[in-house]
């Protein structure tokens, strides 16, 4: 089990900076993020976009800001669990916490800071009758983890983005039968992939159904048919072992909604003294929190990180005296 002072859920800019502010108070941090790298949406979605409202930087690229934050917090030797999602929080008798991930990593900490941004990115699900009945290994897969799983199967893919094109091309050689269903009549993705898919369709190696939608799935415990509606609104069932809807990722609050925290419109309600949630010892900072006058800005998240650290210190060490010092006076003393 990993032991730390503050377990930070989310390794975006605000979660990273919280390591610095906690470090100034001699508290160690462990960060957990569902994405395989640090940086949150800055690294995942817009690494090359310039940001103009970071104090002291007239302009800074998103990834550059993350790289600099990593340098800035290095003296405080944060530790990381990446590519895992926090599923569960257990309060202990001594008011510490054990945080558990979906891969069963456990972190024992004195306080929790949720810096989860938009939440975790999960596959976007189309509205299809019966979809839920065939999830979890009964035929519906929202991502291709192991292509071998689809060998000699009848596969229907739905979507029109790059990943739908790429997996159609890849699975054409693996699966017994591949059908790609796309709502539009053309593809905006990489032209080479779109051409390849058109060629495979011409050669009869895949079925390409344009201007069509998956409207219903049916089966007998496991998926048997995918029902597809064409432009003339005629629905035809086709036999399938698997349906792979590929409509990208969308941010969801996820398991955070189940931790007993006050939630308002997919954000965690906090007080403005220390950004504490309604549960003592659990704090929330950055885009994931809400309060009267909330602004979803990185710079506001940085401010919240500083106040949260003082709140977490008081929670973790109720009897200790905390003296506030400027970094210009004493410099940075890492671990």
């Amino acid at each position: 089990m990993i032991t730390t002072d503050i377990c930070i859920v989310g390794a975006g800019p605000v979660g990273l900076f919280a390591v610095f502010e906690a470090g100034l108070l001699k508290m160690r941090c462990h960060l957990i993020d569902a994405l395989p790298q640090v940086g949150g949406q800055l690294s995942e979605i817009y690494p090359h976009k310039p940001i103009y409202d970071i104090p002291g930087y007239p302009t800074v690229k998103a990834q550059e800001l993350i790289d600099n934050l990593m340098l800035q917090i290095d003296p405080f030797k944060p530790t990381f669990t990446l590519g895992e999602r926090v599923d569960e929080i257990q309060r202990q008798e001594d008011n510490t916490f054990i945080v558990k991930t979906n891969e069963n990593t456990e972190v024992h900490c004195k306080a929790i800071c949720i810096a989860g941004g938009l939440g975790c990115f999960e596959p976007r699900k189309p509205v299809v009758e019966g979809l839920e009945s065939f999830e979890n290994g009964k035929g519906i897969a929202y991502m291709v983890k192991d292509p071998e799983h689809f060998r000699d199967k009848k596969i229907v893919l739905a979507g029109g983005g790059d990943s739908a094109l790429d997996w159609t091309i890849f699975l054409a050689d693996v699966a017994k039968e591949v059908t790609l269903v796309h709502r539009g009549d053309s593809f905006r993705g990489a032209p080479a992939s779109a051409d390849k898919v058109a060629k495979l369709a011409q050669e009869g190696k895949i079925n390409l159904l344009l201007k069509s939608n998956v409207v219903k799935v049916s089966g007998n415990g496991v998926l048997k048919e995918v029902h597809i509606e064409d432009a003339a609104k005629v629905t035809t069932p086709i036999e399938a072992d698997n349906l792979i809807p590929l409509f990208g990722l969308s941010p969801k609050l996820g398991p955070i909604a189940d931790w007993g925290l006050d939630i308002d419109k997919a954000a965690i309600v906090v007080d403005r003294d220390s950004y504490s949630t309604n549960v003592p010892g659990i704090f929330a900072i950055g885009d994931i929190n809400t309060y009267n006058g909330k602004l979803k800005l990185i710079l506001c998240g940085f401010h919240e990180a500083a106040l949260m650290s003082h709140g977490a210190f008081k929670y973790a060490y109720p009897d200790a005296h905390l003296s506030f010092k400027y970094t210009t006076v004493n410099g940075i003393h890492g671990f």
Binding site: P126, V127, G159, G161, R183, G184, G248
Partner: peptide, 12 residues
């Protein structure tokens, strides 16, 4: 915007 619309299942 087009990239995102591509990913919304009920977009037209």
């Amino acid at each position: 915007e087009l990239d995102m619309l591509d990913l919304i299942p009920d977009s037209e």
